[in-house]
Amino acid sequence: MIQLFNICKSYSKENSALKDVSVHIQKGEFVYLTGPSGAGKTTLLKMLYGAERPTRGQVLINGQNVTRLRRSRVPYLRRQVGVVFQDYKLLNSRTVYENVAFSLEAQGKKRYEVAQKVYQCLKKVGLEHKLKSKPLELSGGEQQRVAIARALAVDPLILLADEPSGNLDAEVSLDIMELLKGANARGTTVVMATHDLHLCHLFPRRTIHLEAGRLVNDSMP
């Protein structure tokens, strides 16, 4: 599903975010991407949804070479990849319903399809009763659940989560983990960047550890 071959990413001569990283992730896997701040976790995730291109090496998503993808084709890659961020990235001026519907509308889905799908997804994350609320009226955990609903609404092949519980307390983090595990159980490949080792121990999965841009450990539980 995800293949990285000798990925290097440099922003300047002295500053390398990733150094010779090669990783293969199978369809349906759940993988943690760990490492301290500045290790290159976010850069690696960005490569998977086409926001960054490697300076050297190749990135293949579902057999498609992202490195050679034309800019105009990037949106179509992103329709296969759902992304969840630490800061949720929700539109605060729109309702919960509109936020989730947004990703479906962007893909040109019909209005009745959108309505049905949004309701299903919000039900999955337990927020179907907050359709009309605005994000700022919700708690952090609820906002992240909306973000997950938005990412899952398009039935992505891959779900990327960049520190999804970074801003949340331990109890809420567990709820978020349950949602990600649920998506994985339904067949979505999940790659989650985190520096919360406690979570990794609680839900042991394959862990790829990065340090200073290098892959230092790739271990199965």
Partner: peptide, 16 residues
């Protein structure tokens, strides 16, 4: 700009 960024992240085309 947030709205524009989010649109690009959820796979909206430039035309959209």
């Amino acid at each position: 700009r947030d709205e524009l960024e989010i649109m690009t992240l959820v796979g909206a085309t430039l035309r959209f």
